[in-house]
Design a protein around this nucleic acid. Structure first.
Lengths: 167, 167
DNA sequence: TTGATGTATATGCTCCGAGCATATATTTTT
DNA sequence: AAAAATATATGCTCGGAGCATATACATCAA
C-alpha cells in the first residue's frame, strides 16, 4: 500500500471508531454533545475544576458553566469549593452520576469490543502496541492528555501510556 | 496487555485522530460542523442528492437543506435537477468549491501524516493492514460507507477497502 | 501592607444551527 | 386513476455556544 492510501484507511477507521464511540456514550448521557465526556472526566478526576474541564472539552467558559449547571440540575454532579483555591469550583459526581458514568463507560467498551472482534488475539496485541506507540507520540500538555482520555474507562486503564508519556 | 486495556488505548487513539482530523478539515471549511464533510462528499460523488448527503451526515432533512443553502450562497456548491429523478436535487461543486475541497483534503492528510510519523515503514504497513481489516468489518450499508468515507481523500484512495467490502 | 495584574467563575445577551410539523412536487404502487 | 411513498422546501421554535461584562480570589511587585 502507498503511504497516502494507508493514511486514508487509518483516517477513515478513526472517524468510524470515534463515531460509534461517541454515539454509544451519548446514548447513555442525559443530553447529546460533550455531556458524556464531562461525566466520565469528573468521574476520572474527582475535584476537577470547571476551568480544567473547559480545556479538556475545548469549550468556552460560559458553555462549560452552563453544562455544569445542567449536570447539577439533573442531579448527576455537585459543586464544591476547592480547598486549595477559593476561586475554583471542584466538581464531583453524585451517586446517580456514578451510575450514569458506569453506563457510559460500559456502552463505550461494548461497542469497541465488537468492532475489534474481527481480529484474532495476536493481531489485537499487535494493533494495540502500535496504537500505544502512536498515542504516546500525540500527547502534548496535561490538558491535551485529559482531552485524549475524556472517554476512557479509567478503571480498566492501568499503566496508561498517556500518563507514562507525561511523566 | 489485557483486552480491555487495548480497547482503551485504541479508543483513545481513535478519538484523538478524529479530533485532529476534523479540526484540520473544519479549519479550511466555511463553517464548523458537517460542512467540511459535505464538501468532500459532493466532491467525491458529483450529482449526489440531498437525501443521500443527509444520510451520510446523519442530519435531519431540514438541517441538510439549510446546509446546502449556505454552501450554495457561499458559491461553493450548485443545485441541478437530477436527470433520472425529477424530485431530487443533484449537487455539484463549483470551481471555488473544488478549491476548498482540495484544501480540506490536504490539511487532513498533512495532520494524519505527521501523527503517523512516529512509525517506521514496516510498522506503518502493518498498522495499515490491520486497520483495513477492521474497516472492512465495519462497513454495513452503502449509506454507512459514505459516512465512513466522508472525509476521505478519494484521489488517493485507489482500491478502497470500503468499496471492496460493499461489492 | 497595599496596589496592580492575572485567573476562576457566573450571567445577561444574542446568534445560529437543528429539529418538528407541514406543504409541494414527483415517482411508484395498486 | 387513485393512493402511498419519496424528495425537497420552509415557517416556527428551542437550545447550546460564544461574547462581553461583572465579581471574587490569588499572586506578584513595590
Amino acid at each position: 500500500m502507498t503511504d497516502s492510501r494507508i493514511e486514508n484507511v487509518i483516517g477513515a477507521l478513526a472517524l468510524a471508531f470515534a463515531d460509534t464511540l461517541q454515539r454509544d456514550a451519548q446514548a447513555k448521557a442525559p443530553e447529546p454533545g460533550p455531556a458524556a465526556s464531562a461525566i466520565t472526566l469528573i468521574g476520572h478526576v474527582p475535584g476537577l475544576s470547571i476551568e480544567r474541564l473547559r480545556r479538556a472539552l475545548s469549550l468556552s467558559h460560559s458553555g462549560t458553566v452552563r453544562l455544569v449547571d445542567r449536570l447539577v440540575a439533573e442531579g448527576l454532579a455537585a459543586r464544591f469549593s476547592a480547598p486549595d483555591d477559593h476561586r475554583a469550583v471542584a466538581l464531583r459526581l453524585t451517586p446517580l452520576g456514578e451510575t450514569t458514568c458506569s453506563a457510559i463507560l460500559s456502552a463505550r467498551q461494548k461497542g469497541l469490543a465488537s468492532a475489534l472482534a474481527v481480529l484474532n488475539q495476536e493481531e489485537l496485541q499487535e494493533f494495540g502496541n502500535l496504537a500505544a506507540k502512536l498515542l504516546r507520540g500525540l500527547v502534548g500538555t496535561e490538558d491535551h492528555a485529559y482531552r485524549i482520555c475524556r472517554l476512557c474507562n479509567y478503571t480498566a486503564c492501568l499503566d496508561c501510556p498517556v500518563e507514562a508519556e507525561l511523566a
